[in-house]
């Protein structure tokens, strides 16, 4: 068990950061190259002002009509994404690890609060899962890979919860927690989780089209 822990927190962690960083750069670069090669007009349309206008409008709760049409889903999406970032980034245990290896420190949140945030993330995942199963229009679009992605996202939180409370086999869940977290990070650039990287670009592009060319709102 200990060897596995060493492996996961040593070479595997480096691999994860490598794959995540270079995967993300590769993804961005390939989009940029494709744009310049094949659709250079996009560059002429792109507008910082209207791109930001669109992104900010879509970040404002319930400003877009689409959000008003899906009040429950939109609220879940909001809460989910906020907790998804806050929970791992402000967990004392994570920060301590970073401090030990790289001397990076920032304030942490209390463990019990993170505990709640983790539960919220899991509840949201359950909501997504049920929604995929029961909502006709979502179910129709859903393929196996959507469930796998959901599992990839949920697993680090679930195992983190188990490990933190030391329920059942602590060592097993701790290692699984680290592994699943690494899998999630590595999956981001190469799966639909890449919406984390690409969606600001697509949104900004549509915002520019609407603001610059179409003189209309896109929310």
């Amino acid at each position: 068990m200990n060897e596995l822990y060493q492996l996961l927190t040593g070479p595997m962690l480096w691999l994860t950061f490598f794959v995540f960083t270079f995967g993300t750069l590769y993804k961005l670069l390939s989009i940029l190259v494709l744009t310049i090669q094949k659709e250079p007009f996009i560059m002429s349309v792109f507008s910082f002002k209207y791109g930001m206008r669109s992104i900010l409008s879509w970040m404002t709760p319930f400003k877009p009509v689409s959000m008003k049409k899906h009040p429950v889903l939109s609220s879940v999406i909001y809460v989910f994404h906020i907790c998804l970032f806050i929970a791992p980034l402000f967990l004392m245990a994570h920060i301590t690890l970073l401090d030990e290896s790289w001397g990076l420190v920032w304030p942490s949140l209390s463990d019990s609060l993170i505990d709640y945030l983790t539960l919220i993330v899991l509840a949201c995942c359950l909501f997504y899962f049920i929604r995929r199963l029961t909502q006709k229009e979502v179910n129709y679009l859903t393929s196996q890979s959507d469930y796998i992605l959901l599992a990839i996202v949920a697993l680090p939180f679930f195992t983190g919860l188990m490990a933190y409370h030391q329920w059942f086999a602590y060592g097993f869940f701790l290692n699984l927690h680290i592994l699943s977290g690494e899998i999630m990070l590595m999956a981001i650039p190469f799966t639909r989780l890449s919406h984390m990287i690409i969606s600001p670009l697509t949104r900004a592009y549509m915002g520019s089209e609407f603001g610059e060319i179409r003189h209309a709102k896109d929310w």
């Binding site: 989009i31 659709e39 899906h70 889903l73 979502v138 639909r192 697509t202």
Partner: peptide, 27 residues
């Protein structure tokens, strides 16, 4: 050959959430 960045980003980014459904008069 013809399509590029838009095709790639749209196809790889769509999370199959179905939020676009409400937009379409045909649907």
């Amino acid at each position: 050959k013809e399509a590029g960045a838009r095709l790639k980003s749209y196809v790889e980014t769509c999370v199959h959430c179905g939020m676009c459904s409400e937009a379409c008069h045909v649907y």
